[in-house]
Design a protein around this nucleic acid. Sequence first.
DNA 1: TCTGGGGTCCTAGGACCC
DNA 2: TCTGGGGTCCTAGGACCC
Length: 405
Amino acid sequence: LSTALRRILHVDVDSMFVRCAMLADPRLADEELILVGGRPEGRGVVASASYGCRAYGVRSAMPMATALRLCPAAIIVPAPREMIRQKSRELEDVLRAWAPVASMASVDEAYLDLTGTELLYRGEPLAETARRIQAAVREQTQLDVSIGGGTNRFIAKLATTHRAKPRRVYTVEPGQEAAFVSGLELGDLIGVGPAMLTELRRRGVTTMQALRALELATLREWWGDERARWLWQRCRGIDLSAVTDDDTTKSVSSETTFARDLATTAELEAALLEQTVRAAAALRRKALFARTITVKLRTSDFRDHSRSRTLEESVQTERAIFPTARALLAELREKTDASVRLIGIALTKLSDLDMPVQASLVDLAPPIEADRDRAIARATDRLREKFGTSALRPGRLVAPPGEPE
DNA sequence: TCTGGGGTCCTAGGACCC
DNA sequence: TCTGGGGTCCTAGGACCC
């Protein structure tokens, strides 16, 4: 590892979903109270709130009903998916022009590694480069961003979240990492959530100073090696992880929460088919193939249950995926027959190419998915793109139980 | 106030192989 | 006869982030 100080920036779009909704619908341009999210009637939460709404105490992930009580005048709009995709791509393009290494951490944030660009940027301070990037992003994408900077990813992101938002730039000078973290609460640390906070409090650790006073050995007794080291480093502002260009997709999923809990297998199978169709379409849009299928249920007690299966081949179509998904659902229903509030499917062990079938398997069984299946699926995708998602409803892919196929 | 939907990463046990 | 050590894959669950 090089001993040279790194120059890392974290770039984060200010209320990305709200901004995209405004760009997608000009009628919203002059509105100040906008909430994005809340589709399933009565059970939605806030995905993104305009700063106007935040002034009323509205926060993202808050149930929509609560948000509306706090801010009754707010306008609710669904997430503008296509605009979000487009703006995310535009953002990535702009950022890649500024940094030798750029990594999108989600649709609306990225890490840049500017180490080695000192000459290129004529020795200007990191904060000055950040301000120029901020202006370029605004000009080329119509998005406002906040930018944090420092010698590592963790510090850069903390600087964005706790100092730069909204629309500012804040950099932490080399050597000031530990002092900067000293001014934060335990819960401010990225990666320390409710569970770890409760665990720390239970052991009498409530401040950053108290956490830092602990020996690494003590943390090891409480957690595993990895977790202990992670926490020991982070509360001192240390993060050795690299910014990498590699952001290959690891999973593709689709899930939905019902307006009312469902209880019958027929209803659940219908919902699962719909989610399978969506996930498979997303998989094909990214030109990927999947080997592992996971079905997830959230029961009315808000507990999650999942079953997964890894296939011998990589697949891409609902026709190949659904029979397995349906079998996994049946296994889940054997375990719990409680009513269900959410159903979802996740596709993992992804690859670019369809994995060649092993010779021995060819003799034993036909492929799960034929070229013909893929061709049909792609044609369907194109029709949906042209005429809307409702143009082609998923048909019955398998016979209902008890009926011959 | 009853808790979305898209992800990533980690853990831990068991199977299986050498 | 009652016992190893390491590596990899699979599965279920959970924490966390935006």
